[in-house]
Design a protein around this nucleic acid. Structure first.
Length: 292
DNA sequence: ATGCCTGAAGGGTTCAGA
């Protein structure tokens, strides 16, 4: 098929994000959308926006739960062989709604929300590493044409942080997390945004607090990983920072990838990475969990 | 020294997020 636009977006509650999500779908017109942190049961998801998505010709694969987590795939490029969850994946302690897969336009598409990890060495951190191993096994056993999209909760390199010094000792940057991500990529996946912007500062997440977005103090933790047969088809790969601006945004911006053809002129501007933020004048102290 | 903002559940506050 021709051009296919694929996007991934941690919306931080699809219910709260509806006034941003629907106009964004109409403006960017993605063919396949991977959502994370939907925070709705499947029934609530369908009740809330089933009609809105159907009227835009999207088929929907949802895997949600109440309150936390939740992933989905919207597609008007086909939606076959839907699988929810990770086979033999770990729970915390029960399995959580963090992965859904479907075949869209001949590509096995995964929408994933990797566990946060909370603090290095914690039970949740071990869960995160085990979850990544289960994802790696399932992707390795799957079709060759694949896209793994979502919130990895890992900054692949220090270049993906506004201030690496601020993250020392935190999750998202520890060697075991980065090694787990590298093992996933070693199944034959390419980080297409980094490949297209090899030396640019590109972020996908900015904390809501303390004007972090305004200062461009962000992280790149939302990734599109394309398998060997798919990666050469990538014609554009960018972060839609417009979606992080304005009223009622998610704390994450969408990542948009076009396969095979350059985007048409009528689907909105290509947004280049912002100019590099200046290094903080003073060391930036990240919020810490309160001591128990 | 600090969870500084946001969302969810549920209840007058707490937990989770990265």
């Amino acid at each position: 098929m021709g051009r296919v636009r694929i996007a991934t977006w941690n919306v931080n509650s699809v219910k709260q994000r509806l006034p941003r999500l629907l106009p964004w779908l109409d403006e960017r017109r993605p063919d396949v959308v991977c959502l994370q942190e939907t925070k709705l049961t499947d029934e609530a998801f369908t009740g809330l926006l089933g009609d809105e998505l159907a009227s835009r010709d999207y088929q929907v694969a949802v895997h949600g739960q109440g309150q936390w987590n939740g992933v989905a795939i919207l597609s008007r490029a086909g939606l076959d062989d839907v699988v929810t969850g990770l086979a033999d994946g770990p729970g915390f302690p029960q399995p959580e709604a963090r992965a859904v897969a479907a075949t869209c336009g001949g590509i096995r598409v995964w929408s994933v929300y990797v566990p946060n990890g909370r603090s290095p060495g914690s039970e949740h951190y071990q869960y995160k590493l085990a979850w990544l191993k289960a994802l790696t096994d399932v992707v390795a056993a799957g079709p060759e044409a694949a896209l793994v999209c979502g919130d990895m909760n890992i900054a692949p390199a220090d270049a993906d942080l506004f201030d690496p010094a601020a993250f020392v000792g935190q999750t998202h940057v520890t060697p075991p997390e980065r090694e787990a991500l590298a093992r996933l990529e070693a199944t034959g996946l390419h980080d297409v945004v980094r490949d297209h912007w090899p030396s640019e500062q590109v972020f996908t997440y900015w904390d809501y607090r303390a004007g972090m977005f305004h200062q461009n103090f962000g992280m790149r933790i939302d990734l599109v990983l394309a398998s060997d047969p798919v990666a050469p088809r990538v014609k554009a790969a960018w972060v839609d920072r417009q979606a992080r601006k304005g009223t009622g945004p998610s704390d994450h911006a969408p990542v948009i990838v076009d396969l095979d053809a350059a985007p048409d002129g009528d689907i909105g501007p290509m947004v280049p990475p912002p100019s590099a933020s200046r290094a903080p004048k003073r060391p930036v102290k990240l919020p810490q969990a309160p001591k128990s």
